[in-house]
Computed example of a mutant assay.
Amino acid sequence: MTSSQKPDNVASVMKVFSILEGLAEDGGLGLTELAQRTLMSKSTAYRFLQTMKQLGYVSQDQDSERYALTLKTFEVGAAALSDVDLPRLADAQMRKLSEQTHEAIHLGVLDEDHRHVLYVHKYDSQFNLCMQTRVGRRNPIYSTAMGKAMMAWMDPERAEELARSFDYVARTPHTLASAEALLAELPVIRREGVAEDREEAELGVRCVAVPVFDRFGVAVAAISLSFPVVRFDQSNRERYIALLHEAGRRISRGLGHHDYDVGATR
C-alpha cells in the first residue's frame, strides 16, 4: 500500500461505518435519506450499499427499496460481547469514580444461586476509615445496595419468588427482616433509580448502588459507592448518585445496552 492510497482507504472505511451507524439509528432508510444523513452522494452511498448487500450486512426491501441492517451485524456484535470481561470493561469507570469521590467503589454480580452478591472488582477508599471488603466476597442480596439494585430491575414475579426464599439474618439492627420489607423497597428503588444500604450489612457503613444492564436490558451487575456514616454528607448524596448513573450508563453501553434511563426522572 502506498502512502497516496491510505487516505482513500481510510475514507472508505469511515463511509462504511457511517452507513452502518445511520441504519442502526433508524432502520429502513431509502437511498436519498441515507445519503443525506451520511453526507455522501447518492452514487457513492449506492456503491457501498451494494457491496454491503453482497457481504450480507445490509438487506433491501423489494417493495419500498429501503435498506436495513441484517442479523449478520448482530452476530458480529454478539460475538464481541460474548468475550467481554466485565471487571476489565468496568475498570476505567470505577477508577474515575474513585478519583472523583476517594471512597470505596465496588462491582458486583449475582452468584450461581442468585441469593448472594459476589464482589468481582473494587477500588479501595483513599481514607483510613473505610469499608473492608475483598474480591470474591459474598453478601446476601437483601442486605446490600448492589443486590437490591439488581432485584429492583428483575421480572417482578422472579423478584418476589427470590425475596420469599431468603432466611433473613439480622447482620445489624438495620437489616431488612422480611420479604415484605424487601419487596416494598424495590418499587421505590426503581422509581428513584438508586438502591441504598443504610447500615444493613455493616454497622457504620452506608452504600448507594445502581444497576448495569446487558444488551437485552437485564440487570446483570451493579456498581456501588460505600462510605462510613461519619463521613456522609447529605449534600454529596445527589452528586454521588449522578456519578454512579454516568458510570452505570457507560459500562452498560460497553455491554451493548444503549437505552440507560435509570434515574432519568430524578
Rank of each mutant, 00 (worst) to 15 (best):
V76Y: 05
N236R: 13
Q62H: 10
F227E: 05
R239L: 15
A152E: 00
G256L: 02
I19L: 13
R88V: 13
H258V: 11
G263W: 00
C207K: 04
L225I: 01
R95L: 14
L243F: 01
E103M: 03
L34V: 06
A195Q: 04
L182D: 03
E196S: 12
D155F: 03
R138S: 05
G204H: 05
G30H: 03
V194E: 03
A45G: 08
V10F: 02
A222E: 11
L183D: 08
E202T: 10
Y260R: 00
E161Y: 06
D259P: 05
H257N: 15
L186G: 02
A209K: 00
E202F: 07
L39W: 08
F232A: 13
E199H: 04
G27R: 12
S235R: 15
V194S: 00
Y57S: 00
Q126C: 05
G77N: 11
F74P: 09
R115M: 10
F216G: 15
L55R: 08
V117Q: 03
R164A: 07
M14D: 13
G28T: 07
Y142P: 06
Q100R: 14
L97T: 03
T133K: 04
A247N: 02
M131K: 14
D85K: 02
D26F: 06
A195E: 04
H121K: 06
Y260P: 01
E185Q: 13
L49W: 00
P156S: 08
G27W: 10
Q54S: 14
G108C: 08
L20H: 10
V220P: 02
D214L: 01
G27Y: 11
T70N: 12
M154A: 15
V220S: 00
A170E: 15
E185L: 11
G28R: 09
G28Q: 10
G204Y: 07
E238W: 05
L34H: 03
P7T: 02
T38Y: 03
Q126L: 07
A195K: 01
V220T: 03
L182K: 02
R134M: 14
K42N: 12
V10M: 06
A219H: 01
R191V: 02
D91L: 14
R266Q: 10
R237E: 12
S226G: 03
S224M: 06
V212I: 15
M146A: 02
I223F: 01
Q93E: 15
D167G: 10
D85P: 02
H114Y: 12
L89F: 09
K72I: 07
Y240C: 15
P7N: 05
V262E: 05
C130A: 14
R190L: 01
